[in-house]
Design a protein around this nucleic acid. Structure first.
Lengths: 248, 248
DNA sequence: GGCCCCGTTCAGTTGTGCTAAACAAACGTT
DNA sequence: AACGTTTGTTTAGCACAACTGAACGGGGCC
């Protein structure tokens, strides 16, 4: 397959840069955008009026803001995801039984996307955001159940970015950790993406393919004690198993 | 303010047409898109590879699909909405107390966007989607509390589309209905956007400006009886009042 | 009332995003 | 296994559209 990672349509790129900037700033003006994006004012204005006409941006009294069209598309694509459907109720049960935050994660290219969450406490990654697969428990649970070749491809193609000191940046270390994850069906994460945040995850494997993972996470001081850790590990892994059955 | 509804950047328009088409079809191939959108294959390919490079589309084995970036943006913009924050718990209570579906709606240009919902039963409008303001109870509740001039502007600028037979398409009829809504602080909807679906809504007015509405809806056969209707009307309107206080 | 800042508009030109056609690769069928 | 068909990808080239820069207009704040 050819290299599809080229930016062939620059106008699209600038449009989405504007969208992202509007998102970051929670609304903005023309001049402000033109300065930060290093595009002429009139060009920004052209993009904004186009995005307005298409319904993705609105002009709230001088400042431009994103509309909720993105919510519509985001919700719709999630709703159609079979893993999401199968996992929803189980994630709720998991949050109830553990008293902690329960997540559903699905892979997308090199990233693990947090598709769903119950237990709205602060979490280092908001719903809809994603983290590199090797950088968190849920992602590692997914990675561990890929074929040897796909793991190699992941490492060579995307590299192993470091998030905190505890992120595995060495391929050999990662591989041995993935092996133990595969053996126990459970992945741990002790502060790998946030210093004081821990996580237990188990993969959802359908037909030999890891299509997602469930995880339970909480602040480090609350997720202590071997028994608790083992209990939640059991709950997480059985939740994943239930979801697998749902997906057959 | 000038006319910002012009499509000045056509490349952006086609990119988003591709996005919408990918959304409708839940993934698609190059040729298929090129045929339905009436654009050359290579142009579609250029847009798709650009969208891939930007992370909004992914190439899942031959077919292109939307990624969950839209969920990230959609969730984020909703999360920053003060009305959403203030209303969330109250909508949950409302669903619990009425045993029906409870919604939060906010205005966006000429539309009422369904920002949030508790009680996942089938509903004519999915979360994130929107309906013209005059076409449903929640929208009418919002419209009713706008100034006379803004109502006139709404009618003259956007017109009164018909959704079902019961939609008010006559300005005078609408105006009188809005007046009674303003008097009672409650809007009803008997099958205006779906034949057998009813709805009760109350506006959230902050500082004289209707920033949203809460609504309770259900199938026509379940939402019968004057007492029930009056009871739910009271619950809905007091929920709206509580949210208003939260927003001060 | 004057200033300044911001959004909008306008013409010109370069660069680029289209079309069309050839190429490659992956099926399914015989 | 080899063909034909279908699909994704690449390439060349031209017309046009998406940028720049400067001028216009209007609102708000001293």
């Amino acid at each position: 397959m050819g290299n599809t990672d080229t930016i062939a349509v620059q106008a699209t790129a600038t449009s989405f840069r504007i969208v992202e900037e509007l998102y970051d700033r929670d609304g903005s003006g023309v001049t402000e955008l033109a300065d930060t994006l290093d595009v002429s004012k009139s060009a920004v204005h052209n993009h904004l009026s186009t995005l307005c006409a298409l319904g993705y941006v609105t002009n709230a009294g001088g400042t431009y803001e994103l509309t909720h069209q993105f919510l519509r598309i985001g919700f719709g694509t999630r709703e159609r995801n079979p893993v999401y459907h199968a996992a929803r109720s189980e994630v709720r049960m998991l949050a109830r039984n553990t008293g902690a935050v329960a997540n559903l994660v699905v892979p997308e290219d090199a990233e693990a996307v947090y598709l769903h969450r119950i237990g709205a406490r602060d979490h280092p990654v908001p719903v809809g955001d994603s983290v590199r697969l090797h950088a968190a428990a849920a992602g590692k649970a997914i990675l561990a159940f890929r074929s040897r070749e796909r793991i190699d491809e992941y490492v060579s193609r995307y590299g192993l970015d470091r998030k905190t000191d505890r992120t595995a940046t060495d391929p050999a270390t990662l591989r041995s950790e993935l092996r133990s994850i595969r053996d126990r069906n459970i992945a741990f994460d002790r502060g790998e993406l946030d210093e004081n945040w821990q996580c237990v995850a188990s993969p959802i494997v359908v037909d030999g393919d890891p299509v997602g993972a469930v995880s339970v996470s909480g602040p480090s001081d609350e997720m202590q004690g071997k028994r608790l850790e083992e209990d939640t590990a059991g709950l997480v892994s059985s939740a994943a198993k239930t979801i697998e059955l749902e997906l057959l």
